[in-house]
Computed example of a mutant assay.
Amino acid sequence: MNKTIDIQDLGLKDYKDTWDYQEALFKSILDLKIRNRREATNEPTSNYFLFVEHPHVYTLGKSGDMSNLLLNEEQLKDKGATFYKINRGGDITYHGPGQIVGYPILDLDNFFTDIHKYLRLLEEMIILTLAEYGLKAERSPGETGVWLDVGTPFARKICAMGVRASRWVTMHGFALNVNADLGYFDNIIPCGIRGKAVTSLNVELGVERISMPQVKEKLLKHFSTLFEAELNTVTV
């Protein structure tokens, strides 16, 4: 089992270009797994973790409801935003500058074959990271992602999640609001959940800007511990 994960920070990158890149890495792992099975070989599969920020974009998961996007094509253009229907789970979400998006593309055969556990560990990574900033983040029953003040009228989501998996290979991932422009969430019903607010780390801490590299460093520290992985930073 290969527990080494290549970490790539793609910086600010177009959503569709990043999606295509994810798909290429995802396919390379799947192809090797199929070849190993067909030829009775045991060549180790690779694992990747991509960090990225996207220009303003709305994405709708395969089980999502189009009516949760509250903008038409012209209004999207006016907002400088794009829209894609994609192949992850979940409903609609927003990505944009000031948000840390993470795409782990892992062969879970290298770790554990349990998608439920995988999602819970991703949530735990976020919860532990936010705890370092003095925030008590938690899960909301029946709702994937990470929240604050669960069970109160002030419940608000700080991190959205949606993944795809095939033959235990994962793609897509999480979006953590760090310095996000929350006004863009007003144009959707986030994750299809009505009556719940969205927040960002800088808002919660009452500061203008949080260091994105610092947050990424904390995320990776908890990720490597939770997944018992060795991280290898790759320059792109």
Rank of each mutant, 00 (worst) to 15 (best):
F154C: 01
K216C: 10
L201I: 05
K33V: 01
S200D: 04
L205R: 05
A81G: 11
A81Y: 11
N42C: 05
T113E: 14
K136I: 01
D9Y: 08
V169W: 10
H172Y: 06
F185T: 02
F154R: 15
A81Q: 08
G98D: 11
D186V: 00
M212D: 00
E217R: 01
G206K: 01
E74L: 12
N177W: 15
M1Q: 06
C159P: 05
A180H: 08
Y58A: 05
L69D: 12
I105N: 09
R35N: 09
L135R: 03
E124F: 08
G173P: 14
F83I: 09
T4N: 14
K27Q: 14
D20H: 11
E217N: 02
L119S: 12
Q214D: 15
V207Q: 03
A229S: 13
Q99S: 10
E23Y: 09
I34P: 00
K216G: 07
F83K: 10
A175Y: 10
M161S: 14
F111E: 02
L10F: 13
T129C: 10
N232M: 07
Y103W: 08
K33Q: 12
P190N: 02
G102D: 11
G192K: 04
N47T: 06
T144C: 10
K136M: 06
L32N: 08
S63L: 14
A229L: 07
T59R: 03
N177Q: 05
R88K: 09
T4E: 15
L219E: 04
Q99C: 13
I5V: 15
H54K: 06
S200L: 02
Y15T: 11
V207E: 03
G206F: 01
A131E: 08
F83Q: 13
L226G: 08
V52F: 10
K216S: 07
Q99H: 07
L30T: 07
E74H: 12
Y118L: 03
L135N: 05
F83N: 14
P104Y: 11
F174K: 08
D65Y: 02
F112K: 03
S63W: 00
L176I: 04
L60F: 13
L70G: 06
L122V: 09
D9L: 09
N47A: 09
A160Q: 07
N110F: 01
D107T: 04
V215I: 09
T18H: 04
E138D: 15
T235D: 08
A165C: 15
E204G: 01
G61H: 04
D149R: 11
I34C: 00
L119W: 00
M125I: 12
A165F: 13
V52H: 09
N47I: 12
S28M: 06
G64E: 04
C159Q: 03
F227L: 03
L60K: 03
S46M: 13
F83D: 15
M125Q: 14
P44G: 07
T113K: 15
I92A: 04
I126R: 00
D17R: 14
N42S: 12
V150R: 11
P104L: 14
Y133I: 00
N202D: 06
L30W: 02
E143V: 07
